[in-house]
């Protein structure tokens, strides 16, 4: 193992490979892990760094990924590879041109993005979305840890708006080849039809690749929260506020607003609340603002699901609240500072 590392070092030092130094460094980091233990803030004395955060996140995403491949076939693996390649090219190009290190944040973005796509989405849509998400969602802000919006969601939002027909008509029930437009939320909206809760939990309904096997999502989310990579405040307040607002809405206008339990399990809500709203970079950093963030996310989700032309509001709500995050943090800090005086 050690010799391999030395060999890699020697190759990296060759003049020929000078411009690609960043690539070698990343390879080394992924294969061998960090060699130095950081001494100062913010990682005090452990050798934890972004990489470990990313590893934990990827482990938490495994149930959704594997269930996606099992449910929808090997094509899903191809989509994941396409997403990694397209986003990776953008990432590496930025790193080489700007002479920075390649950052590992991309490993999670590149995996999440195909998981929130419909299972029969064309490969070129995956490529375009992943590249746009990484480029405009992350790299123009300076890379991992400096972005305002969740890059995977920026990509998803872009392809949803740019190719509406492809995105709304490429759903599929697990273990079948028939293409359908009827996700549980869509069939509620068009026919007022409620899908069984057990079906939703086990994932035998149409939906995005990673969102259908909901037991796996819940397990992954709890794992994320136990390892403290994701903060429990955001998912809890997000889900609670969806339940609360859909309960109130269902009492007032039952034909427009779906009942709370169905809303909690249907669509991408669980996936969004567990894996995307909790992104530590794009969500607020105060405890209080995290509750506000989650609560408003829930409100926007219910409003869009019930009243707008779109059937699913999770991605809109999270991007919307990403935009509001700095403002919420600003005002919460201001109020806190005042009471402290």
């Amino acid at each position: 193992m050690k010799k391999l590392q030395e060999l890699l070092h020697a190759t990296a030092r060759l003049k020929l490979f000078k411009p690609f130094a960043a690539v070698f460094e990343t390879l080394e980091g992924i294969i061998f892990g960090p060699t130095e233990i950081t001494a100062g803030a913010p990682h005090v004395v452990d050798n934890i760094e972004i990489k470990r955060y990313m590893t934990v996140a990827i482990i938490a995403l495994l149930p959704s990924t594997i269930s996606g491949i099992v449910f929808f076939g090997w094509r899903v693996l191809l989509m994941i590879i396409a997403s990694y390649v397209a986003g990776g090219i953008v990432e590496v190009a930025f790193a080489l041109i700007r002479k920075r290190e390649i950052e590992e944040g991309f490993l999670v973005t590149g995996l999440i993005f195909p998981l929130i796509l419909p299972p029969t989405a064309p490969i070129w849509v995956v490529v375009v979305g992943s590249a746009v998400g990484v480029f405009f969602g992350k790299e123009v802000f300076g890379g991992t840890g400096r972005n305002i919006f969740n890059p995977a969601l920026v990509g998803r939002l872009f392809v949803t708006i740019a190719f509406p027909q492809i995105m709304s008509a490429s759903w599929q029930k697990p273990f079948s080849d028939a293409i359908t437009t009827a996700t549980p939320l869509a069939s509620y909206k068009s026919a007022g039809e409620l899908t069984g809760l057990m079906d939703l939990l086990m994932g035998s309904v149409a939906g995005s690749i990673g969102e259908v096997f909901r037991i796996g999502i819940i397990a992954g989310g709890i794992f994320l929260m136990l390892t403290k990579v994701a903060n429990w405040r955001i998912p809890v307040s997000y889900l609670a506020s969806v339940a609360l607002f859909s309960w109130i809405g269902n009492l007032i206008a039952p034909d427009l607003v779906a009942p709370p339990l169905f809303q909690l399990l249907a669509g991408g809500l669980l996936f969004g609340a567990m894996f995307m709203a909790t992104d530590p970079v794009t969500s607020p950093f105060n405890h209080e603002s995290k509750f506000i963030f989650g609560g408003l996310c829930g409100l926007v989700t219910v409003v869009i699901r019930s009243f707008s032309g779109y059937t699913e509001g999770v991605m809109f709500s999270i991007i919307f609240m990403n935009a509001l995050t700095p403002l919420i943090d600003h005002f919460v800090l201001k109020v806190k500072y005042r009471t402290a005086k």
């Binding site: 405009f136 939002l157 708006i161 869009i304 032309g309 991007i319 935009a323």
Partner: peptide, 19 residues
């Protein structure tokens, strides 16, 4: 960068279309 931010926020506001 302001135009990029505006564009992404505008995308998310499109979700309210029809409300």
């Amino acid at each position: 960068i302001i135009m990029v931010i505006l564009g992404i926020i505008a995308l998310s506001f499109l979700g309210f279309a029809g409300v």
